[in-house]
Write a protein that binds this DNA or RNA. Structure first.
Length: 260
DNA sequence: GCGACAG
DNA sequence: ATCTTGTCGC
């Protein structure tokens, strides 16, 4: 029989986020300061879409030196369309599905892990961007890395940036609080970095800067973006089939011509 | 009514 | 996010 899953109507999802808002803000207020000297592991999450098989979630694990340690992907048809502000309800299930097996392989590392998510954290109308949902659900500090603004007044404090990366401004909420930093990367791209949960803005920004290379996104998010897009394109080209992904990714991604 | 609007 | 050719630049 069909399970009585509650209808994902937007109004109900918005109410859920209004309840989560307090949890998110409390997790940030109570967050322990990040120690720059600590070694850490970072997870990167992103999603792409294949016409034939729907959503592709990608999770990657990097170490302090930004070396890729492990990766995992997931497939699934999203339950709801994209609605600004409700992205988490569309894409987070893909992330959880990829994270579960990945985390199982590295459970002892979770005590010093941070999650980078493609999308916003608290720079969201209800302070509950997808990075906040993920951080709350996993009980881990999370950081949102977005390419475009969603919410907040854009305040640019530095018109120029001679030696990137630079913090060129921020997004502020109605109450005047800083919600996200606007960063100019080494490649000249602009990204919006905001805390998801369990971490403060200044620490989120410091970590994001630490994870920057000569690329348009911080390494964790960049690697996840590349992986998800590559899988989605390979699926559509028929280079790989969903069944090929059920026994791990090893060997599937080398010599794949889909990048040409 | 008119914009704005992560991915 | 995705659909898409050529093109400017390192």
């Amino acid at each position: 029989m069909t399970l009585p899953i509650a209808r994902p109507d937007p109004e109900r999802l918005v109410r859920i986020q209004k309840l989560l808002e307090k949890l998110v803000l409390d997790s940030i207020s109570a967050a322990r300061p990040w120690r720059a000297s600590d070694s850490f592991y970072c997870l990167g999450l992103d999603a792409a879409y294949s016409r034939r098989y729907g959503g592709v979630g990608a999770a990657v694990l990097l170490d302090t030196r930004l070396k890729l340690l492990d990766k995992e992907i997931s497939l699934g048809e999203p339950n709801i369309p994209y609605i600004p502000g409700l992205l988490a309800f569309r894409e987070a299930p893909l992330f959880y599905a990829a994270l579960y097996p990945l985390m199982a392989r590295h459970s002892y590392k979770r005590h010093n892990m941070v999650i980078f998510v493609d999308g916003h954290g608290v720079s969201h109308p209800r302070r509950t961007g997808i990075a906040s949902h993920i951080g709350l659900a996993l009980g881990l500090p999370s950081i949102g890395v977005a390419k475009k603004r969603l919410y907040g007044r854009e305040v640019v404090t530095e018109k120029t940036c001679n030696e990137p990366p630079c913090i060129i401004g921020y997004l502020e909420g109605d109450d005047g609080n800083k919600l996200a930093a606007i960063i100019r990367t080494y490649t000249g791209s602009r990204i919006y970095v905001s805390p998801g949960a369990y971490i403060r803005l200044e620490d989120a920004v410091e970590l994001a800067l630490t994870c920057l290379r000569h690329r348009p996104l911080p390494e964790p998010t960049y690697q996840a973006d590349k992986l998800s897009k590559r899988i989605a394109r390979s699926l559509d080209r028929g280079t790989i089939r969903p069944a090929d992904l059920k026994h791990g990714l090893k060997g599937l991604l080398v010599g794949d011509s889909s990048t040409h």
